[in-house]
Amino acid sequence: MSELNRYQNPEIFEKLAMSYAAGTLHGRARRRFEALKEQHFYLEATTNAYESQFGSLVELLPNEKPSDQVWKNIESSIMADISESEPKAEKRQWFSWFKQSYAFALMALLVATLVVINPFSEIEEAVAYSVVFESEDKTPMAITRITQDDLSVSVDIVKDIPVDDGSVLKLWCRLKKGGKAMMMGTISKTGRTVLKIDEKEWDNLKAVGMLEITSESAKTSASPMTKKTILLGQLNPITR
C-alpha cells in the first residue's frame, strides 16, 4: 500500500491525527504527518478537531505570569506590523468612524455596499469543505471534499458499506436550522464519485450542517419511507 493510500485510510489517519494532537507522535513521524497534513485537507480537518479537544487541557494548568518585557516586545512587533500595512490602517479608521456614528440607516447601507464591492474585505470564506462520514458505531467509512475551484463534490468510499445489491446510495445535505434533507446526487458503492455543483449550490453550503448517505431500493422513488440513513458526517469549512 502506498504512503498516500495508507493516509487515506480513516482508521490509520484518524489514529495518527489523534496521536499528533495529543502530542504522542514524535520525530520523523510527526514531521511526515505535518507534511501530509499540509497537502490533504481531510488530515488537516481531522487533526484540527482533535487539537481542539486536547487543547482544553490548558484549562487545568495553574496560571504563571510572564515578565513584563514579553508584552513590550509583542507590542513593538505588532506596531511595526501595522505601520507596514496601509490597507489595515485604512480599515481601522473606517471601523473607528463606524463606532462613533449614530446614523444607523446610513451605516447599514455602507456595510451592505462594503460587503458587495469592497476588494479589501477580509470576511473569511470557505474555499473547500470536508466531511468524514461515520457509521452508527462511529467507524469512518467515507470522505467527502467539496471544492470551490472546480465546483465539485468528491465522495470516496474507503470501507465496504454493507448494502443490498438492489439498492443505491444517495448523498443528502441537511441545513443547520433543520428541516427536510435535500438530495445532492447518487453515488457509487465503491471508490470515488464526483458530482458537479453550480455557484448557487456552492453558496448554499454555508447553511448546511450535515451530510448523510442513504441506502434505498433502486426501484422506488426517494422518500422518507423508503430510504435509510447509513452514514452521517458534519460539514467542516476549510479556509485559507
Binding site: A49, E51, S77, D81, E124, T239
Partner: peptide, 22 residues
C-alpha cells in the same frame, strides 16, 4: 504575534478560542 496576525482565521468551528490559542 501569530495570534494577532491570524486572529481573522479563527472561527468557532475551529473550537474554543482558548484551545485554539493553546
Amino acid at each position: 504575534i501569530k495570534i494577532w496576525q491570524k486572529a481573522d482565521s479563527y472561527n468557532v468551528q475551529k473550537g474554543k478560542a482558548l484551545t485554539w490559542m493553546a
